[in-house]
């Protein structure tokens, strides 16, 4: 048992942190200044888009390593549809989609987003009313499930006519999907275990995004508390502010511990156990994210309530992460059901 990153994994994190720094968003106005197409090409060049490419059935990078790659980008508030792209790739790879399509995605020539149920708790059926496009920026199509198929059969839908929504997260816009022509079955239906593994991966990525946003947010808030002077002293010397920051740290470190395990479990444990680890991670991360998002804004005082400030960008991104692939109620119920089943079997 050695639950620490390897030197290679540390290096991956550092590489991604350096790249993420070039995409950092420090205010809503800066969102427009990011060259998103160039950033996407860079992601392809770094190999991030193809991290889950299979070689002999084995992914090039573990799900844990994927979280190491996306956390710093989330921390920078990079406005990129990366989570959706990685999850679309994963689902297509699991379904056995053809190599040309996967290569197009890995090399950034084509993007595919995800079609989510209206409550954002999971993939939508292709005919679901009110389905929402997640991470569809620059995508010509989205991935959904074929309705009434009995299994998880991925289907690709064209996104023509989608209407942007005024969602909470300004860095990852959502859109309403308008049903149209051109649904195309892709690959074969996933076995239940494979789809459970995909669902666990999806939850782990949502949690990793949340952890990334909050961890950098806490670092910035702490820096502010060290330099903002009131009553002739830094506000960070007041115990009320210190304890608020310590509270955030405990919530975030707990979230990070649970997320690392859930991400590792995606590849390393039986599918049911991987999903159970995901339930735990999201059950902790969702409320932790809500609380820490509020506290982040609180540390900055009045300035943290203004439109121009970055604090609400973080709180907003966490709002989406909290709901993405299920909020705490969803996952706590799943835990309760699992524990019932285990008890009744004993």
């Amino acid at each position: 048992m050695r639950a620490v990153p390897t030197p290679d994994q540390e290096m991956l994190r550092e590489t991604m942190a350096r790249f993420a720094a070039t995409l950092a968003v420090n205010s809503p106005a800066e969102l427009a200044k990011i060259d998103r197409d160039a950033a996407w090409r860079d992601l392809a060049g770094l190999g991030v888009l193809g991290m889950r490419a299979r070689d002999g059935g084995v992914p090039a990078a573990s799900a844990y390593e994927v979280t190491l790659a996306i956390e710093p980008l989330a921390g920078a508030l990079a406005p990129l549809p990366l989570t959706g792209a990685l999850l679309a790739y994963e689902l297509l790879a699991l379904a056995g989609a053809d190599a040309a399509l996967l290569a197009d995605l890995a090399e950034g020539r084509r993007r595919i987003g995800l079609l989510l149920a209206p409550d954002l708790a999971g993939l939508a059926d292709a005919d679901a009313p009110g389905a929402v496009i997640f991470d569809g920026e620059g995508a010509d199509s989205v991935l959904a499930l074929a309705p009434g198929n009995g299994g998880a059969q991925p289907v690709i839908l064209a996104v023509e006519g989608a209407a942007a929504m005024e969602g909470a997260d300004l860095t990852r816009p959502l859109a309403v999907w308008r049903p149209g022509a051109g649904a195309k079955l892709v690959g074969a239906p996933l076995a239940a275990d494979a789809f459970a593994r995909w669902a666990a991966f999806a939850v782990a990525l949502a949690c990793a995004d949340l952890v990334g946003v909050l961890r950098d947010g806490l670092a910035h808030a702490v820096d502010y508390a060290k330099t903002r002077i009131q009553y002739d002293v830094p506000i960070g010397s007041f115990q009320a502010v210190q304890h608020m920051c310590a509270d955030m740290l405990v919530r975030i470190e707990g979230a990070a511990s649970a997320t690392r395990y859930a991400a590792w479990a995606v590849d390393a444990l039986p599918a049911a156990d991987a999903l159970a680890a995901a339930h735990v991670a999201k059950s902790w991360c969702a409320p932790a994210g809500e609380a820490a998002g509020e506290m982040l804004m609180q540390v900055y005082g009045g300035i943290g309530q203004t439109w121009e400030h970055v604090a609400h960008l973080r709180a907003r991104r966490v709002m989406l992460d909290r709901l993405l692939f299920g909020d705490e109620t969803h996952h706590l119920n799943a835990i309760a059901d699992n524990r019932d089943a285990v008890r009744k079997a004993a």
């Binding site: 806490l218 702490v222 060290k226 830094p234 960070g236 115990q239 210190q242 304890h243 920051c245 310590a246």
Partner: peptide, 14 residues
């Protein structure tokens, strides 16, 4: 414990 985290981990001033 929170004082320890604030002072020694986060580096907030006394």
């Amino acid at each position: 414990q929170k004082n320890i985290l604030a002072g020694q981990v986060l580096g907030l001033p006394r």
